[in-house]
Simulated assay, not measured.
Amino acid sequence: MPDIPLPSVIAVSKGRAHTFTKALHGSITLLAALGVEGDAHCGVTVKHRSRVAKDPLQANLRQVHLLHSELHDELATQGFQVGPGHIGENITTRGIDLLQLPRSTRLHIGATAVVEVTGLRNPCSQLDAFQAGLMAAVLSRDEQGRLIRKAGVMGIVLCGGVVFPDDHIIVALPDQPHQPLEPV
């Protein structure tokens, strides 16, 4: 029987400034109820600039951005050059269909960190500034014509800890009934 690799972390990234791309690091520290230590989006209240403009006191449901590296593979077949951290994610994964997880799924990452998935990342026009046509490439439609957003998921930190590339991820689904992910 072939070995099936466990879901894992491929890369970790963070950025102090509100820039599109985040720098790769050897590790990141997740802080409970806050996010990634030293990242521009760390905090109890929302830090995403367009959301701050609407309501600076709303809860930060976007403390951690996770992106499946399988999207990088898909984009490469379309001629895009996108790698870990390039489109703003903090944790790049492999082996998890992040987009199909229900809301409130808990991702146990490494020794102690736990991230609860809150929703989908809604792709923005900054993608096209990074590489022309990238926004359209991370959007598609299902058989019923519903929009599929492929730019990863957002989460909150339930338990802090240090996350390294190659850390394993254990997926803990919430109780039924499962709620599908919506943009946050």
Rank of each mutant, 00 (worst) to 15 (best):
residue 156 I to M: 15
residue 82 V to N: 02
residue 132 A to Y: 04
residue 11 A to Y: 00
residue 34 L to M: 13
residue 130 F to P: 01
residue 112 T to H: 08
residue 17 A to N: 10
residue 114 V to R: 01
residue 5 P to S: 15
residue 26 G to P: 13
residue 102 P to Q: 08
residue 40 A to Y: 11
residue 136 A to T: 11
residue 179 Q to L: 15
residue 16 R to Q: 10
residue 38 G to P: 03
residue 171 V to S: 08
residue 103 R to E: 10
residue 4 I to P: 04
residue 75 L to P: 09
residue 117 V to G: 00
residue 34 L to Y: 11
residue 154 M to I: 10
residue 77 T to A: 10
residue 117 V to C: 00
residue 25 H to R: 11
residue 71 L to P: 00
residue 15 G to W: 02
residue 76 A to T: 13
residue 9 V to L: 07
residue 88 G to Q: 07
residue 126 Q to K: 14
residue 139 L to K: 09
residue 106 R to C: 15
residue 89 E to W: 02
residue 128 D to I: 07
residue 157 V to I: 07
residue 67 L to F: 11
residue 157 V to A: 08
residue 84 P to V: 06
residue 21 T to F: 04
residue 30 L to P: 01
residue 87 I to W: 00
residue 107 L to A: 08
residue 11 A to H: 00
residue 95 G to F: 08
residue 41 H to A: 15
residue 6 L to Y: 07
residue 45 T to A: 06
residue 68 H to M: 11
residue 60 N to R: 04
residue 16 R to M: 12
residue 171 V to G: 07
residue 114 V to Q: 03
residue 16 R to W: 09
residue 79 G to I: 11
residue 108 H to P: 03
residue 17 A to H: 12
residue 9 V to Y: 04
residue 27 S to T: 07
residue 47 K to A: 14
residue 184 V to C: 12
residue 135 M to E: 13
residue 150 K to D: 09
residue 64 V to I: 07
residue 82 V to A: 01
residue 3 D to F: 12
residue 120 L to I: 07
residue 142 D to Y: 02
residue 100 Q to Y: 03
residue 105 T to Y: 02
residue 172 A to S: 13
residue 30 L to R: 00
residue 130 F to R: 09
residue 162 V to L: 01
residue 126 Q to E: 13
residue 129 A to W: 09
residue 133 G to Y: 07
residue 93 T to K: 00
residue 104 S to M: 13
residue 114 V to M: 02
residue 19 T to Q: 11
residue 33 A to M: 12
residue 92 T to L: 11
residue 118 T to L: 08
residue 154 M to F: 14
residue 103 R to Q: 15
residue 17 A to Q: 14
residue 78 Q to M: 14
